[in-house]
Amino acid sequence: MGEMILQVNHLSKSFGNNEVLRDIDFTVSKGDVTCVIGPSGSGKSTLLRCINLLETPSGGEIVYHGKNIMERGVNVTSYRAKVGMVFQSFNLFENMKVLKNCMVGQTKVLKRSPEQARDNAMKYLEKVGMAPYINAKPKQLSGGQKQRVAIARALAMDPEVLLFDEPTSALDPEMVGEVLSVMRDLAQEGMTMIVVTHEMAFARDVSSSVVFMSDGVICEAGPPAQIFQNPREQRTQEFLSRFRQQ
């Protein structure tokens, strides 16, 4: 186990009277690949968005390197720069070419020089196999290509943790492959990742721990072997039954 990076304590979130997350606890250490699985509407994406403060949690704490980032006066933007996020809907900047998409955060937020940003962006674009497309606009790319650029954009910020919010849910099976292979490489290189996904094979093979969520609570958590082979909770068994039959 590496150094502890992120610790979520008793996190809750409600939209009006609707309680979406209740008493969420888990920790992420350096190099961990945590996969969050569970039925749609169970709060997985909300949890991820809370961790990146795109949603303001209603209660609990998110401790990053020993500091609760939900306190007043914490510099939210510099925290976000260290916690990268990849979205289901890619969210590439439509007004910029692929290369610029990967550079703008580095130059504006990290204040890197354009040359430095360019080199770094190219490094990661090559890694995800999108270097040939640096002059393309996002709308000229396929979904899988967009998602790979989005991953490169997040990586170019040299984040400490990468959050993936159902990165392959909007893609066809072929494109899922190209995106998952990039993520698999990242995991092997020791990137710390929290992945909300419906790709059970990926969760089983790549993750170091799996969190199963249902109805806004963590129903069961543990190493993938335990969750996929011997789920203790009945709800987990039900959810995984279709997958385990395969």
Binding site: G129, Y133, I134, S142, R148, G177, E178, A201, F202, F243
Partner: peptide, 20 residues
């Protein structure tokens, strides 16, 4: 737009089998 080189990760139709 101009392509700088071939894309190595895109798989052409039919050459891919499901991850699981």
């Amino acid at each position: 737009f101009e392509l700088a080189a071939g894309d190595t990760l895109t798989m052409s139709a039919g050459t891919y089998s499901h991850p699981s």
